[in-house]
Computed example of a mutant assay.
Amino acid sequence: MTRIHTTIGEHLIQIMCDSDKITKWIERNFPVVNIIKPLPDLFIKLEEGYGTAFEDYHVEIAKDADKISFQRADYLIETSLDYHDSNIAVHDELALKHALMNLYSSYLVYHQWGLLIHSSCVIDKGKAYMFAGHSGAGKSTAAKLSHPRELLSDEATIIKIVPGQITVFDSPFRSELVRSGASEKSPLTNIYVLHQATDNHIDPLSQSNSLLVLMNKVFYWSHSLDETRKIFRLLQHVVTSVSISELHFQKNETFWELIS
């Protein structure tokens, strides 16, 4: 059984795994750290050989007195109610990435630390700019067109939420683009909801519309009304702390002339 320590955001994670294939995937995609103290925030035991290949994103959730389970065709998570101790069984690397996103997002919401947002995020002049939108809106495209600016995420952005201060952390949950800089985190300055267009222009959003837009961009698998309320409260801090606009952009780098 291999023991790996890694970090996501500000959280230390201990992973136990007896699969060389899974271990190598983690070492390729997550920072491996040598830490004895402090104790990890999350303990995860990983197994492979579960279920079938990816079918769809539907997740069955069950909760009892001392644990929660999240089950998809290609992964199964069984975790303590505070997400501190978890067993994860997966079919392949894609299932592992999605299962870790599921678990980590749930941990963030439960502890009201922050959120995992379906978006890309780029640093320009020390400030982070997040690009959100529906599937196919151009999140990865905007990230690619932002080169050589540093990239913090191209699929799932990790944000820490403190009233009046939103911080973006480097995300290991990547789609296709690799990390392009040395920054581990940066203050979030703007969020842009993307729309591909024939010209570049910006339309500011009200706080109420921003809240509605961002609500369905959160990676989260809701199992209780209380957890949904936590997401809503966290997003309220976001929309009162950060400027949020619709960005209509051409598929070239000229949109940066409007936002930087």
Rank of each mutant, 00 (worst) to 15 (best):
M1S: 09
H5E: 00
T6H: 09
H11Y: 06
M16K: 11
D18M: 11
D18C: 12
K24S: 08
E27A: 11
N34E: 04
I36L: 08
I36G: 06
L46Y: 00
E48R: 06
G49E: 14
Y57K: 09
K67E: 11
Q71M: 12
A73T: 08
A73W: 10
L76E: 01
T79F: 15
D85Y: 14
S86T: 13
A89H: 14
H91M: 06
L94I: 12
L94A: 10
K97A: 03
H98C: 03
M101C: 11
L103R: 05
Y104F: 13
Y107T: 03
H111A: 05
Q112M: 09
W113M: 06
H118Q: 09
S119W: 06
C121Y: 04
V122E: 03
F131N: 07
G133T: 02
K144V: 12
K144T: 11
K144A: 12
S146P: 07
H147S: 14
P148R: 02
S153T: 09
I159F: 09
I161R: 02
P163L: 08
G164D: 15
I166R: 08
T167P: 00
F169K: 04
S171R: 00
R179T: 10
R179A: 03
S186A: 14
P187V: 07
P187Q: 10
T189P: 02
T189L: 13
L194W: 02
L194I: 06
Q196P: 15
Q196G: 15
P204L: 06
Q207D: 02
N209P: 13
L214T: 05
M215V: 08
H223I: 03
L225C: 05
T228A: 15
K230M: 05
R233T: 13
Q236W: 13
V238W: 00
S243Q: 14
S245H: 03
H248T: 05
N252H: 08
E253G: 15
F255Q: 01
